[in-house]
C-alpha cells in the first residue's frame, strides 16, 4: 500500500529525514517510536504533504502512484489521513459543516454522491459513539476552545467519518489522560479493517498497550535504527533509547 524508499527531507537548509525506507501493507499496524526531534512528526507530515518540508531525495509510492506528486488534498481524497499532533483551530466554522465538506470531497473523489446535512447527521450519530462524543460537539467551531483531549478525540472522529485507507496518528497520545487515551485507542481499534493500515507515531510505549502494533520501528536522527515486533516497544520502555543510539553511534 505504502512504499517509502530512501526518503530524505529538509526544513530550510536543515536535513531532518536522512534516508527512510518503510513498507506498509493492508491490515498492518506500524508503530514509529523515537526520542524528541528524531524526525517522527516530520515523516508523518511529509506523507500527508505539508508544504513546509522539502523532499530532497527518495520516493514514496501509494497504491502504485507517486505520492510525492500529489497535493495534500488529493492525498486526503485518496485515503490518507493524518491525525494532527496539534489540531488546528478554525473559529466560526462549525465542526459539522467542516466534517461534511471533507466527507463530501472524499466521496466525490471516490465517485460517490454528496450527502445533504440530514443524511450526514445520520452518519455522524453513529460515528460520535465511537469516540464517546455528543452532538453538541458538532455545533462548536472546529477545535476552537476544545480541551487537549477533545481535540484528539475530534481527530479520531474525523478519521471515523473519512474512513481512510492509511491513517497516520501523530503523537495522538501525547497530553491525554488515561481515560482519553483509552477512548482514542478503542476508537482506532474499532476502525481497523483488513484493507486499511495504520501508522502510529509515538514517544511512549503506553499507547501500544491499547493499539497493538505488528511492527515497531525506532527512528532517531532521521534514520530508522531498528525494526522489530511489538516486543521491541517493551524493550524500549525498559531500557530507553540511549542504548540504541549508542549502538548506532558505535556502528557509524
Amino acid at each position: 500500500m505504502l512504499k517509502i524508499e530512501n526518503l530524505t527531507a529538509n526544513v530550510g537548509d536543515k536535513q531532518i529525514l536522512k534516508g527512510i525506507s518503510l513498507t506498509v501493507n493492508p491490515g498492518e499496524v506500524h508503530a514509529i517510536m523515537g526520542p524528541n526531534g528524531s524526525g517522527k512528526s516530520t515523516l508523518a507530515q511529509v506523507i500527508a504533504g505539508h508544504p513546509g518540508y522539502e523532499v530532497t531525495g527518495g520516493s514514496v509510492t501509494y497504491d502504485g502512484q507517486d505520492l510525492l506528486e500529489m497535493d495534500a488534498e488529493v492525498r486526503a481524497q485518496a485515503g490518507i489521513f493524518l491525525a494532527f499532533q496539534y489540531p488546528v483551530e478554525i473559529p466560526g466554522v462549525s465542526n459539522a459543516y467542516f466534517l461534511r465538506a471533507a466527507y463530501n470531497e472524499v466521496r466525490k473523489a471516490r465517485g460517490e454522491e454528496e450527502v445533504d446535512p440530514m443524511e450526514f447527521l445520520d452518519v455522524m450519530t453513529e460515528k460520535l459513539k465511537i469516540v464517546e462524543m455528543t452532538e453538541e460537539m458538532l455545533q462548536r467551531s472546529v477545535n476552537a476552545g476544545f480541551s487537549g483531549g477533545e481535540k484528539k478525540r475530534n481527530e479520531i472522529l474525523q478519521m471515523a467519518v473519512l474512513a481512510p485507507k492509511l491513517a497516520i496518528l501523530d503523537e495522538t497520545d501525547s497530553g491525554l489522560d488515561i481515560d482519553a487515551l483509552r477512548i482514542v485507542a478503542e476508537g482506532v481499534n474499532k476502525l481497523k479493517r483488513p484493507d486499511n493500515a495504520t501508522i502510529v507515531v509515538t514517544h511512549y510505549q503506553r499507547l501500544l498497550n491499547y493499539i497493538v502494533p505488528d511492527y515497531v520501528h525506532v527512528l532517531a536522527q532521521g534514520r530508522i535504527l531498528r525494526s522489530g515486533g511489538k516486543e521491541l516497544a517493551l524493550e524500549l520502555e525498559e531500557r530507553g533509547y540511549d542504548w540504541l543510539l549508542e549502538t548506532a553511534g558505535a556502528s557509524a
Partner: peptide
C-alpha cells in the same frame, strides 16, 4: 489552517472560503 483543511481533502480555495466565512460569522 489551510494545510489542516487540505489534509481533510479540501482544496486551497475551498479552505480559504471556509476560513473566511468562519471569520465573518
Amino acid at each position: 489552517q489551510i494545510f489542516y483543511c487540505k489534509a481533510r481533502g479540501l482544496n486551497a480555495e475551498h479552505a480559504i472560503s471556509l476560513i473566511v466565512a468562519g471569520f465573518c460569522k
